[in-house]
């Protein structure tokens, strides 16, 4: 699936992005809860290499006591935020330069911090790439939900992207670690991150 960012007037950009993210979430997110789902599933042989994999959520420690409706709503809300972040930070039409839009998925203070790590938290380093495809988008959620009220979550992420440069060379980009989110008036947003970024030229690339 190709994920395209819509060109929108500045005034409506945010609403359009949120709408896009929700559409992408609906189409892209594969919600899976509890046992029996993991990121170790073999790749779908029918998926073209130009398509990104879906975001795959699993519920981890602290989620077993959540009521089904609370859990479903929680996963939907968090997946919206994570999908919105992944789309605006790494996917979309390349070449592109609008990586700063990924900051919309952070809290205000978090965005100020993340702006200093934009090269690491987004695809800004390969702005001139030909294409970027998500090969792995796994997130394992450890919710903080006293009294059935989700008040925070730590998402252990394992993201891998294939980047095809303008000259045809490919790079495998891995982003791993934790994104920590909290509910805000605008929905769930990232307020903390502890991540590692590893960019490796793929085999055969120079």
């Amino acid at each position: 699936m190709m994920v395209r960012m819509l060109a929108t007037p500045r005034g409506t950009a945010r609403r359009a992005r949120v709408g896009l993210a929700l559409l992408v979430a609906a189409a892209l997110v594969w919600l899976t809860a509890g046992a029996g789902c993991s990121g170790d599933d073999p790749p779908d042989p029918d998926r073209p290499e130009t398509e990104s994999v879906p975001l795959e959520l699993t519920l981890g420690t602290g989620s077993s006591g959540l009521d089904t409706d609370v859990s479903d709503r929680f996963q939907t809300d968090v997946s919206d935020a994570l999908t919105g972040y992944v789309v605006s930070a790494f996917l979309g039409d390349y070449p592109r330069s609008d990586f700063v839009e990924a900051l919309d998925w952070f809290t205000t203070g978090g965005a100020a911090l993340a702006a200093g790590d934009l090269d690491l938290l987004t695809g800004a380093r390969f702005a001139e790439a030909r294409s970027v495809v998500a090969r792995k988008l796994d997130a394992r959620l450890a919710p903080f939900a006293p009294g059935q009220q989700p008040a925070g979550v730590s998402a252990g992420i394992d993201f891998v992207f294939d980047v095809v440069a303008a000259d045809g060379g490919t790079t495998e980009v891995a982003l791993t670690g934790r994104l920590v989110l909290m509910p805000t008036d605008d929905g769930w947003r990232i307020f903390a991150y502890h991540v590692a970024r590893d960019d490796l030229p793929a085999e055969g690339s120079s």
């Binding site: 952070f106 809290t107 205000t108 203070g109 978090g110 100020a112 911090l113 993340a114 200093g116 790590d117 690491l120 938290l121 670690g177 920590v180 307020f191 903390a192 991150y193 502890h194 991540v195 590692a196 970024r197 590893d198």
Partner: peptide, 8 residues
């Protein structure tokens, strides 16, 4: 491998 860590 580069790392980044911050809390709002």
């Amino acid at each position: 491998v580069e790392t980044a860590s911050a809390v709002d």
